[in-house]
Design a protein around this nucleic acid. Structure first.
Length: 476
RNA sequence: CGGGGCGUAGCGCAGCUUGGUCAGCGCGCAUGCUUCGGGAGCAUGAGGUCGGCGGUUCAAAUCCGCCCGCCCCGACCA
């Protein structure tokens, strides 16, 4: 617990791992590639999950639950899908001591099992739209894993909808993308770029994949959520049909979309520093920590009474805890709660009691401020909101100052090798250029951003015509 | 699956070259007292089949062989 965190500037990866381990968000498990999410980490995930769950329900969706196991044959029904996912599936071949007639895949995503059910449930245009979400664990046998960012098993939310028309499906898809992006900015304080994936990067089996992309403090991109317009690819493969008003049989138009425990990793890499976690107040399990400084008196009851009063006064508005344990020094506690990312610390000691005030210390900028007892409540609320906004602002400024508009491939290569960052450049749309750029710079097309202006330009590699700039970056 | 590194107390490590007071250190943990405005001090104490199996030897953490596991870099991959 008292170990030092590797400096972010020294080694970003190690810094990240140190934060996760030392703040007890997660631990390596005995199973390769799988992690244990510890109470501190799970509490953050619960805040993310509960908030998103509310937003998803408010936008008209219902939760349901489908099985963990999926018959192997289901996967083979959609050609692109099976090609994309087979290599990373865990397969159950035995059960109850016997070899199974048909192997079961542990779900790497649930399109195939859910749409098998949809084909049973959907008969008429009156059954549409179907708007279902599930919270689940899934397994992808990744070669290389990293805590929260890519683990063999992870937790996520996957929405699966079916609609009568292409337009409705497209609208749903974008609605969810906006929901994700609002969540990222308003709750996670992370600015994101919305856009569409290139053919190469899109989801296996989708017509189009949209995503939100964020910049981490090492200037690499992290995909924070995806929303797929599946078209009729799956409905044709799984025979999900409905009868229209005028009696025709038609395949439904579908979408699927998800975010995962990776968001916890995003939160860490976007805001945290060499002292530990920096959490946006809206997602911090504990928003305020009160720390007493005992002083010379033997009797601590006065100070404890005052702390209780403060706690009771603000606990309706914020989640507050006091650390009145006597075994650790104030200094130790300061460091401990900074490590855990508690946004606001309130210190109270003998001097403060004399003056009828307390000391506020912000986690995001370490600024100290004296606050009189009668002003605590309003100031807490104000400061937490201010922290929420300031870290978004800080992350936005960081991203903007590391986003470059290049027309010269040499500069592109240079920046990737030297500092990294987001490069907005023209691209002809050809996969061959995309591949070559990736090979030479390790940068991929993260997204073709919606808000990229129409402008005529030349592909940064081959010089062919292009109508807008797109986002290249090294990516997780 | 290729290249490199590592397995000794809960964690981090020293010891191995040259076999024999080498079962050790730091942190953490437990108990007690004194402390407390930025990671407290002292005292006492608990804790290890030295990754596993086999071999060499009077004697193996140390030398040899095989096996197992983990980490990093690549290949792979949302």
């Amino acid at each position: 617990m008292a170990e030092r965190i590797t400096k972010q500037s020294e080694d970003f990866s190690r810094w990240y791992n140190d934060i996760v381990i030392q703040s007890e968000l997660a631990d390596y498990s005995p199973v390769r590639g799988c992690m244990v999410i510890r109470p501190n980490g799970f509490a953050i995930w619960e805040k993310i999950r509960d908030t998103l769950d509310r937003l998803i329900k408010e936008s008209g969706h219902q939760n349901a639950y489908f099985p963990l196991f999926i018959p192997e044959s289901f996967f083979k029904k959609e050609a692109e899908h099976v090609k994309g996912f087979s290599p990373e599936c865990a397969v159950v071949t035995h059960g109850g001591g016997n070899k199974l007639e048909e192997s079961l895949m542990v779900r790497p995503t649930s399109e195939t099992i859910i749409y098998t059910m949809y084909s049973k449930w959907i008969k008429s245009y009156r059954d549409l739209p179907v708007l279902i979400n599930q919270w689940a664990n899934i397994v992808r046998w990744e070669m290389r894993t990293r805590l929260f960012l890519r683990t063999t098993e992870f937790l996520w939310q996957e929405g699966h909808t079916a609609h009568a028309t292409y337009e409705e499906a497209e609208e749903e898809c974008l609605k969810i993308l906006n929901l994700y992006s609002d969540f990222a900015e308003k709750y996670m304080s992370i600015p994101v770029l919305k856009g569409q994936k290139s053919e190469k990067e899109k989801f296996a089996g989708a017509l189009k994949t949209y995503s939100i992309e964020a910049m981490m403090q090492d200037k690499k991109a992290l995909q924070c959520g995806t929303s797929h317009n599946l078209g009729q690819n799956f409905s044709k493969a799984f025979n999900v049909r409905f009868q229209t008003k005028n009696g025709n049989m038609q395949y439904v138009w579908q979408t699927s979309w998800g975010v995962s425990t990776r968001l916890v990793g995003a939160l860490i890499m976007a805001h945290s520093d060499d002292q530990g976690l920096v959490l946006p107040p809206r997602l911090a399990p504990t928003q305020v920590i009160i720390i007493p400084i005992w002083g010379e008196k033997k009797d601590n009851s006065e100070i404890i009474n005052i702390i209780d009063k403060i706690k009771n006064d603000i606990k309706k508005d914020v989640s507050v805890k006091a650390d009145t344990s006597e075994q650790n020094s104030p200094g130790w506690k300061f460091n401990q709660y900074e490590l855990l990312g508690v946004p606001l610390r309130i210190e109270i000691g003998p001097t403060d009691i004399k003056n009828r005030e307390v000391v506020f210390v912000r986690r995001d900028n370490n600024k100290k401020e004296k606050v009189s007892w009668d002003k605590i409540k309003e100031n807490v609320r104000f400061i937490l909101e201010d922290i929420q906004k300031s870290i978004l602002k800080k992350a936005s400024e960081f991203r903007d100052s590391n986003t470059f508009y290049f027309d010269d491939y040499k500069k592109f290569k240079e920046i990737m090798e030297r500092d990294g960052g987001f490069v907005m450049a023209h691209w002809c749309g050809e996969k061959s250029c995309e591949d070559k750029i990736q090979e030479e710079t390790k940068a991929v097309i993260c997204t073709i951003p919606f808000d990229s202006k129409e402008e005529s330009g030349k592909c940064i590699l081959c010089g062919d015509n292009s109508s807008k700039r797109i986002l290249f970056a090294r990516s997780y």
